[in-house]
Structure formats: structure tokens, C-alpha cells
Design a protein around this nucleic acid. Structure first.
Lengths: 149, 149
DNA sequence: CTACAATAGTTGTATATACAACTATTGTAG
DNA sequence: CTACAATAGTTGTATATACAACTATTGTAG
């Protein structure tokens, strides 16, 4: 079913306007899929994003601003997301001794274990994306990158 | 600049995973553009979406559930969005006399006037989307529609 | 007719985004 | 050295999403 049926809008003034709405609508669809996927592990898509970033630098710590600039959503509030993760024991946070303005964040073993579990379950999720071919996925990436420039 | 540089992630396990992140990232970028575009008119992107839906049926009223099922984000809370718009005088809402469970919502003249103003400013916004060709926009729409099925 | 299912919307709570004002610490021009 | 700019992060508030429990009204099986 195409976008027009999904949101019951017949006409878009241009293909560009339709593309913008389509990207937003598809992102909402993906976000919901992710929310379900991560829920059994007690984390949100945004918290998953932070954990994945921290795994990328593990065992090196990142400061909060490093996390923010790597996030999918730049204006999300890393302070509060990290605090949620800390309460669950998935990250450590401590003031950097060399520069007490900074806060060093590292992922814990428990955090890494959750990511490993999610990796092992990702086949099913990837299957839902395979309505398109690998070539189409590549073309999608190319067009989206070009759009933002 | 491609996705990898924007979020400083070097490798994705598949083109599919990268495409998923790319759609989410591009949607966040578009949402921010829209927020700026609508801000001078005192509405949010979500409120704009509701107004556009109501213009689509104008002068016929819609009930809340009609609005919800046409929205880009299906789980957003139409009750509260409509209440915000009513406080600004952009929509009317009254209990349906035939079925007092329903609430009939219509866009006001003031609401229509805001949409007209936004339409008149949309050239500039469309220009930011024209990094891709019309053919690429069409291909993007085709791939996104296919992805969701 | 009555009990109950279905429909339509509301409200409460946890989470997250958007933005601005704020504190604390560090760097540096003079 | 001192004043102030720059850096790093925190906190408050308005908005919106996600989900469940709730009220009110209407439809219908028996």
C-alpha cells in the first residue's frame, strides 16, 4: 500500500513534497518497529542509540558532547538519556579527573550483554526490511544522502 | 556529506541497516526544517499536519478518529493536539448532535489563513529539497512505499 | 427491556524533544 | 594576576509520543 492510501491524502503538489512526507512517515514506521524490538530488553530506541555509540568507542569513554554529536537526533538530551541508562546499570559515568567540566561515560558489561542479545535477534528485524532488494537499499542511501546536501 | 560522517559511524553490517538509520536520520533533519518553517506561525509540525488534514475535508467536519488515522504519526494524541489548536482559535470542536460520543472538528478561517501563508512561503522550503532531481524523488517514493510492505 | 459488547474520546504517567537560562570550570587577553 | 570568554554539562518548561486505564454513549443478542 502506498503513502496516499496510508494517510488518505490524494494529491501532493510535487514529488518533492510527497517524498518529504514519505520519509517522515516511514521513519515513524521504523521507530515503532524498533520500539517493539527493544522493549523486551527494557530500553527505548533512543537509549539503544546511545548504547550503540558507547559500544563503538568501548573500552574508551566518551564525554557527553561526543555522544550528542553522534546521535541520530542531534537535539535529544544526552544528559537525561545517560542518567536513565545509569539507573539501569547499563553505563558508568564519572567526572573526568583532567577536566572537571567533562563527564566520562562508558558502557558496562550489562550494557554490552543487552546489545549482544539484540544483535542475535536482528535477523527477524532485517527480514522485515527485505521487501526491497539490496540494490534498492543502496540507492535509497544514495538518494537520502544527496537530499540532505 | 554522507550518513557515516554525520553520525560518525564507520561500518554498518548491511545496506539495510544503514538504510533504516538513514531514513530515521533524514526524518529528524526534515522535522527540524519544518519546525523552523512553522514556528513563525506559532504552530508545530504535528499541529500543521492536523490543520492540513482538516483543510482536506473542509468544510466538512472530521471526527477525532478520522484525524488520527490520516496522521503521519499514528500514535500521536489527536485529543490533545486539537485542544491546543482550539485554544489558538485555529479549529472548532463540538460534540456531534447525532452521536454524542463523537466530536466534530473543523478548521476555522484563521486556521485556513495560516495554511495559505505557509503555502506562499513553501518555495524556499522546496528549494532545500531540490538537491535531488524529480526523478530521484519519484524513485525515493517508490522504494519507501515498497520498503513498508 | 436488560446486560453487555462496541465505539469514541479523555486522562494519567513515563519517556523524549526543543529551547533557553543556568552553574561550574578552564583558558586567555591585557 | 584579573576579568571575561569559552567550554561542558544541568535544569526548567512547553510540546509531543506511547500506552494503559478510564468515562460516556450507542448498538445488539437474547
Amino acid at each position: 500500500m502506498g503513502l496516499e492510501e496510508d494517510i488518505q491524502q490524494k494529491r501532493f503538489s510535487t514529488e518533492y513534497e510527497k517524498a518529504a512526507v514519505n520519509v517522515l512517515y516511514t521513519a515513524s514506521w521504523l521507530h515503532n518497529l524498533n520500539a517493539v524490538r527493544f522493549k523486551k530488553h527494557g530500553i527505548t530506541p533512543e537509549q539503544f542509540n546511545v548504547l550503540r555509540i558507547l559500544r563503538g568507542s568501548f573500552p574508551k569513554a566518551l564525554m557527553l558532547s561526543d555522544i550528542t554529536c553522534r546521535m541520530v537526533d542531534k537535539s535529544s538530551n544526552a544528559t537525561r538519556l545517560v542518567e536513565k541508562l545509569r539507573q539501569k546499570g547499563l553505563v558508568n559515568r564519572e567526572t573526568c579527573p583532567n577536566n572537571r567540566r567533562q563527564v566520562d561515560i562508558t558502557i558496562t558489561e550489562k550494557g554490552l550483554a543487552i546489545l549482544t542479545k539484540i544483535d542475535n535477534e536482528s535477523e527477524e528485524w532485517l527480514a522485515t526490511l527485505k521487501g526491497i532488494t539490496a540494490a534498492e537499499a543502496k540507492e535509497l542511501n544514495r538518494i537520502l544522502d544527496k537530499l540532505r546536501n
